[in-house]
């Protein structure tokens, strides 16, 4: 995608967009799992998969973006991707250590 196309602005929100989808999935999965009394290990596995998928997606985007910081907006996009990666690990990582449905 050309770095000057309007759609390139989506790179600015891609990182924290993924952080948001992780939030929605973690919240929904946890709520459904607890409501249907899934085994705690199954809920934890589901949460871990959501976290891993998002970390992997963010790492892939960072890898892609590292090679194309041709203008200021794309540099800012790279910074937001890195910030979103840290935010994702910080926000959802500790959940794997907690008891799911207390």
């Amino acid at each position: 995608m050309s770095p000057t196309r309007p759609a390139s602005l989506l790179w600015l929100v891609a990182g924290f967009g993924l952080w948001s989808t992780a939030l929605i999935l973690v919240y929904a999965l946890h709520a459904v799992g607890c409501a249907f009394v899934w085994p705690p290990a199954a809920i934890r596995l589901g949460l871990a998969l959501v976290l891993l998928a998002h970390v992997a997606a963010l790492l892939a985007l960072i890898h892609h973006q590292r090679r194309r910081t041709v203008n200021l907006l794309l540099q800012v996009a790279l910074w937001t991707l890195v910030a979103a990666l840290v935010a994702t690990a910080f926000t959802y990582g500790p959940l794997l250590l907690l008891t799911p449905c207390v």
Binding site: F16, G17, W19, S20, L72, V76, W79, T80, A83, A87
Partner: peptide, 17 residues
Amino acid sequence: YRASIAAIIAMAFLSFG
């Protein structure tokens, strides 16, 4: 300037979550 733009975007998303 750049860090501020990144911070504004981060703040916007985090505030919703």
